[in-house]
Amino acid sequence: MIGYLKEIFSGTWSLFVGLGITIKYFFKPVVTVQYPREVLPMTPRFRGHIELTRDPETGGDKCIVCGMCQKACPSNCITVVGDKVEGAKKKALSRYILDFTKCSLCGLCVESCPADAITFSKDYNLAGPSREAYIFDLKKRLEERKG
């Protein structure tokens, strides 16, 4: 009988303790970020989709069209197309296609690049109406960023 009452009492007490905790948090300030209105800065190492880095000297890309990133990619989402340029030894990048629909953001391409020509973008707000909107030409994107 005593045990029975004790159980009831301790059980009820645990319920009141719980209520005490939740009401304490009720009066504390909120911790959420009101996302579209407030935006948190991304960390420097954030791995978004890849992007070509700009060569500070030429203002163009640094890509040497070696195709290492293409080989490193586990999902075959990178296609690098280069043209022979008259007079120059190296090939020049003409198109850098990233099929973002297949990309798993693993970062192996960036790691494999010998020329530091690609980097992660900090762009995570990606939304689009069609699948084709995610087949990026990074070269074009680099040129557009210029303006």
């Binding site: 960390t43 190492r45 791995r47 693993c106 790691e111 992660f120």
Partner: peptide, 20 residues
Amino acid sequence: ESVTGSRLTYSYFRFGGVYN
């Protein structure tokens, strides 16, 4: 995230060490 660059699928370790 600040170390690996990702919040869920880190892919942080490499054969012979860690990414950075």
